[in-house]
Design a binder for these strands. Structure first.
Length: 290
DNA sequence: CCTATTTGACCGGA
DNA sequence: TCCGGTCAAATAGG
């Protein structure tokens, strides 16, 4: 399972604050060298902030990447579309394969006029089997070779997501926590069973997760993946391992997104609860279920 | 053999 | 007609 680095809001605030500091220090009367230096710092802060935003967990809104022309009662575009930039690290650079919770199949690549890098076209692997029409386009950024522009088109209608824990906000009563285990029996049917999973259990197992990714098409839910080195006694991991095609819905409380513990905590006042091995972020999920 | 990727051909909107 | 997006045959690889 691929790990995706996650940053928290504090890092974002730190970066932005730092950027603001640099802006404040900017003095038109200062030497060009000094201001160049400051400008570089400002740009760097903004760049880092953007990177953090690209990785940060989305919570409260249904559409973290709103369309520009999403106005009033105007006709919707034929297909929803949103873009984001993804920064890659180390070895990912060579073979860009950003794990976003869905499986994609490449179906084309084009050189784009005026662009240095070609654009790659992907569609959902389950297009043929489940008629899922989601697609995405990936193009290396010209400004930063570590950044990829990713444009998503269409919503996923497919039901499979391998080896992911799926936290769902929907239809929950307060202070309940359960795992819905979904097994894809065949291409058309999904068998679902509910496994109780209390906050106590979360705590006793010291459940820690890497946030894998949060995608706009999963805006009311999020994918988490288990830490690979905590597998032995951890019940959920056993469940995960029981089938390649298992999908686990890890359900929690809220009656509304706004009141969601995620929207509260996902403002990532994640401080002490977090075991931070920079730059990866681990989240003790027990705090979200109290 | 099956599935995924590559890549030139093709299509259609501007 | 140009160009971005998709198709599909060829190819790769397990």
């Amino acid at each position: 399972m691929e790990k995706v680095k996650v940053w928290n809001k504090e890092s974002l605030i730190t970066e932005l604050t730092q950027g603001k500091e640099f802006v404040n220090q900017f003095d038109p009367l200062a030497s060009p060298e000094e201001n160049d230096f400051l400008l570089e710092k400002i740009l760097s802060s903004l760049d880092k902030s953007l990177s953090i935003l690209n990785c940060i967990v989305y919570n409260g809104t249904n559409d973290p990447f709103p369309l520009r022309d999403q106005g009033q009662n105007k006709k919707r575009k034929k297909m929803q579309q949103w873009s984001k930039q993804v920064r890659v690290y180390g070895t990912e650079l060579e073979s860009f394969n950003h794990e976003d919770g869905y499986s994609w199949r490449k179906y084309g690549q084009k050189n784009i006029l005026g662009a240095i890098h070609p654009r790659a076209y992907y569609r959902c692997t389950h297009r043929n089997t489940q008629g899922c029409l989601a697609t995405k386009q990936v193009q290396k950024s010209e400004q930063d070779p570590l950044v990829f522009d990713v444009t998503y088109k269409g919503m996923h209608s497919c039901k499979t997501s391998q080896s992911s824990i799926f936290i769902s906000y929907e239809n929950q009563k307060p202070n309940q926590c359960q795992i819905k285990k979904q097994r894809v029996e065949n291409l058309n049917t999904i068998k679902e069973e509910t496994v109780p999973f209390t906050p106590l259990q979360c705590e006793s197992h010291n459940a820690q997760f890497f946030v894998n990714s949060i995608e706009p098409f999963a805006s009311e839910s999020m994918y988490l993946s288990l830490l690979p080195n905590q597998e032995e006694e951890f019940e959920m991991d056993k469940i995960l391992k029981s089938s390649e095609s298992d999908r686990i819905v890890f359900s929690s409380t809220p009656t509304s997104i706004i009141d969601s513990p995620f929207s509260r905590d996902w403002d990532l006042s994640v401080n002490d609860q977090l075991d931070v091995h920079d730059p990866n972020l681990m989240i003790d999920i027990s705090e979200y279920f109290t």
